[in-house]
Design a protein around this nucleic acid. Sequence first.
DNA 1: AGTATATAGTTCATAACTGAATTATCAATA
DNA 2: TATTGATAATTCAGTTATGAACTATATACT
Lengths: 163, 163
Amino acid sequence: MSSFAPTEQRLDVTLGKYREFPRQPAVLVRLVKHLYKQIHDEANAILRPYGLNHPEYNILMMMYGTPDNAMNPSQLSDAAGEKSANVTRLTNQLCDKGLIARTASEDDRRKVTLTLTDEGTALIESFLPGISMLLLQQTGNLTTDEQGQLEKLLKKMLEGFPA
Amino acid sequence: MSSFAPTEQRLDVTLGKYREFPRQPAVLVRLVKHLYKQIHDEANAILRPYGLNHPEYNILMMMYGTPDNAMNPSQLSDAAGEKSANVTRLTNQLCDKGLIARTASEDDRRKVTLTLTDEGTALIESFLPGISMLLLQQTGNLTTDEQGQLEKLLKKMLEGFPA
DNA sequence: AGTATATAGTTCATAACTGAATTATCAATA
DNA sequence: TATTGATAATTCAGTTATGAACTATATACT
């Protein structure tokens, strides 16, 4: 019995009770949730020895993935998929840990610039091998072709949500 | 520019900095996270007038999707994809709201039985039309065939995680 | 039968997340 | 130029989620 079977059985019974129930969409939504939870938990576990949790890691990686290791909170919010209040909280924590620095922006006084410190960059580079292996493992059940298809379908589904 | 483009650009730059970075798996994981967040936020918004949030709704729907509207917390934990401590917390809240009842199990003294009340069932049936429409809308960008493919691929990916 | 191990669910303290309000700043409009 | 509307980020109080510990109970082993 797969880990999704209990959920799917509940959806089947629901369809029996309420004939208009959109079973297929519900299955998809539930699969996304289950997957997210697994991904999140595994990431938290592997990042713990580095003194980080999954959302903090996500923030750091988004910053690392810029030419100059710098972003402002709104950009981070979009790229990391976190709400602005949470970006503030997470970046406060990363600042406290000395992994990023916060400075005022010169061209727009409303803006803040967040920059990876050398310590932050070093930490990222220290966990990248482990995280890379985890990512490969998490998707290892899919062939390269299947991964490409999945990417295409997930993007298409995501495009249906308001930006 | 799609809502995923900022994220994807960051992953592209990351690959430039760290050549072993598994970009494709990282894209998939990020897509799942973004999707989950959108689904979660939209569900919370539509359920708010019913005095429920997304995780509470998930619990209720799993119970509704049983022949006798009853489950124990471990079954719920599996089916709803919530940790046991959270199942306790969520079901306490649903009990307080009069939507479920908690009784001791007869065959196993360690077990608890959680059952939908009439009020709980009525509430579910009152939001089912709205939720159904939301589910259809959330997956509306995909054809029926694509939805089937996506289900298959998500299940395959999920099967790669420890149960 | 007695002991060791596993299970079910809860508690509790801590950490994480959120929505609404806020202030300063920028951009658009009249 | 003055006013209006939008944006950026933060604060704050309340809500949600979690890991570890715990107790009672069931199961497995000796």
